[in-house]
Design a protein around this nucleic acid. Structure first.
Lengths: 208, 208
DNA sequence: GATATTTTTGAGCGATCACTCAAATTCATT
DNA sequence: AATGAATTTGAGTGATCGCTCAAAAATATC
């Protein structure tokens, strides 16, 4: 046995994530990374292999952290539908300075990566697809639980939700007004909630 | 007087637009531009000043072309609301190969440009704001014409529409299935149309 | 303390970046 | 045809790009 690495890999990845998320892939240079990670090029390449691979790892970390936050929000909500609405509202309330960018890093990556970078492109599409499937599963469960009508199409609703989130977060990057974004997120959340089948007041299933 | 430039400036800008729209700002090199424009660096710089300035001009051309297409669509529609819905449906039907990217170039620019490039950033935000104001004006006119309820908020609806379009077009870049995107665009269009006040069948204003 | 194994370092690689400019070329005017 | 003002050319600028690797430093074992 011998020397052990002096850095905390997860902490390093978080710092790389901040930088990449804020500046994008192409605009982030290795010099930037050397400063942010406080590592010399040799160490960076020994640990991660390439700039592209490092970016990929930060993307995975991003998706994983986002997913964790989303699931926490969902667990706290009284119904699945309320959970989805709460998620959208939460996205509308992010403080601009608490985060490297208000836009979704996956969308930033997708739009910055034409067909010429198949690795990152595929990775991004896969992650997006996974999130969408997760949404669909929640809608499906909500339908099975009688929260939304039998006629609802989970896949379609999931795609639509992803569209709203993509759009909302891109819009949030556009404007200075946090209040405006929050109001728009609320509009979207309300539309989600409007799918709900109104609960009978007291009686369990049938009208009295 | 003397020699006149041998290229058609507008045609050159269109070729630059295709390249920038497809690859993004940072990923497009001057070598790429030299090939696409069939111009040598000196000529490019004599004509446009810098890569950034050239990108700005292509952005302007993009916005202008998009606006023209939108207005044409609006003019053909029976009502303002129908025009907006038709615009969304049209965005859902774009053939992937007919266009450098299905995503909006303004959004791509916004997400690729952190605060460090104030020129392009400001230009992009201004153009987006202008489009949004245009949407709001249309909604306002629709309200004045009795197409939508008096209680409708044009600015809010305009922001929401921009969000849906941002999201839809980013989503379109994500997926291979044109049919799916078209279906989602139709969902969004239907939501827009659902704002409409149902027209009385035959009588002009009052019930008979 | 000596050894073995690993990590860290940072000068420097070739390639490419956005860009410049003096010279060659072109063409409306004379 | 000669002139003169403009455009076009492309070799070349210094800077920076992502990345390499031999040497130095560090530490778990013996």
């Amino acid at each position: 046995m011998a020397r052990q690495a002096s850095y905390d890999r997860e902490a390093v990845l978080k710092r790389a994530l901040e930088l990449f998320w804020a500046k994008g892939y192409h605009a982030t240079s290795l010099k930037d990374l050397e400063v942010a990670l406080d590592m010399r090029p040799g160490s960076i390449y020994a640990a991660f292999g390439s700039k592209e691979a490092l970016y990929g790892e930060t993307l995975r970390l991003y998706a994983q952290m986002s997913q964790a936050g989303f699931e926490e929000m969902l667990a706290k909500a009284p119904t699945r539908l309320a959970g989805l609405a709460a998620h959208v509202r939460a996205l509308g309330c992010v403080a601009p300075n608490s985060v490297p960018s208000r836009a979704c890093m996956l969308v930033k990556t997708l739009l910055e990566t034409p067909d010429d970078d198949p690795v990152l492109r595929q990775l991004t599409e896969d992650m997006m697809r996974k999130i969408e499937v997760g949404f669909a599963n929640i809608y499906r469960a909500a339908r099975a639980a009688g929260e939304i009508p039998e006629t609802a199409d989970p896949e379609r609703l999931a795609s639509r939700l992803q569209i709203e989130i993509f759009g909302l977060r891109a819009y949030a990057q556009r404007t200075d007004s946090g209040a405006r974004v929050a109001a728009l997120a609320d509009d979207i959340a309300r539309d989600i909630e409007s799918l709900a089948i109104p609960k009978p007041a007291t009686a369990p299933t049938t009208a009295h």
